[in-house]
Design a protein around this nucleic acid. Structure first.
Lengths: 151, 151
DNA sequence: ATTTTATAGTTGTATATACAAATGTGAATT
DNA sequence: AATTCACATTTGTATATACAACTATAAAAT
């Protein structure tokens, strides 16, 4: 459905405005859908994001700054996100012995199992949304988004 | 910048996953930039959204449901958003005389003035992001996003 | 007329987010 | 060695969001 119909706009919209609304609305649709997938596993989207970053470390610990810079929303409070994951025993944290200001965060076996259970659902989620586009269109959409935000 | 560089991904990513990350990240960039514009006017993005809907009513009152269905994020608590706008005297609310369950919300002169002050900044914001695309690419990006989320 | 069902909005509560200030540690300067 | 500066993370606090339960009103059914 076109964005004007969704938002029941009565006046015609500039294409530049439409992109903003389309990006914001598409993000909402994706996020709501993804939250449904996460709900039975009792983790939030941001917590999932942290777990993915930690798995990507392949056994190396990540400190708070490393996690922060790899996250989508840089404004998140990483300390508290890690606190929540710690309570669920999905990560461990300890002070770095070389530099006691730093914290070493690692994903646990339990954390890896949660991700493994989610993996097929996440792939299905990604493909669900792109199934209406052919591979050229998918590549083109990525290029246009990257070009769009390149200031 | 490409999304893999931004998120410092070490492994190559599927294009379907990239779209998700590109949409989420682009939304973050747009929203952060827009919040900077709103900050001096002391309203949030959601509050701005409600004011725009009310101005679009052209003098007709909007009830809570009408506001809700025209908002980007349908999960927002419209009552409390309107409460905040009421405190700032940007809207009025009264019980609908025909159906006392309904609430009639109207934008005030002060609300219209806030929007009027923001209008040029909002247009500049929209055009700032699309300046790297030509008009065909802008139209194409809208089409692809609409096709993408069409399930 | 009374009860049931549907509609419209509000409130409670728990959790999340935003942003600034504070804390603790290490490195550099005097 | 003491002071200053930079770095890494945490904490406080105010605001926002999510979701369910609740209240009030209207319409429909008995």
């Amino acid at each position: 459905m076109k964005i004007e119909e969704i938002l029941k706009s009565t006046v015609p919209m500039d294409n530049s405005k439409k992109i903003i609304l389309n990006v914001l609305y598409t993000q909402n649709v994706i996020t709501e859908n993804f939250n449904e997938i996460l709900k039975p596993h009792e983790i939030s989207g941001e917590q999932y994001n942290v777990l993915r970053i930690l798995r990507g470390q392949k056994g190396n610990p990540a400190n708070m700054w490393t996690i922060q810079e790899r996250m989508l929303a840089k404004t998140s409070n990483t300390t508290r996100l890690v606190d929540k994951l710690l309570l669920k025993e999905l990560v461990t944290r300890k002070v770095c012995p070389e530099n006691r200001r730093k914290i070493e965060v690692l994903i646990t076996q339990k954390g890896l199992e949660v991700l493994a259970a989610l993996d097929p659902k996440v792939i299905a989620h990604e493909q669900f949304f792109s199934k209406n586009l052919n591979s050229e269109e998918i590549a083109l959409l990525n290029q246009l988004l990257e070009k769009y935000r390149n200031q």
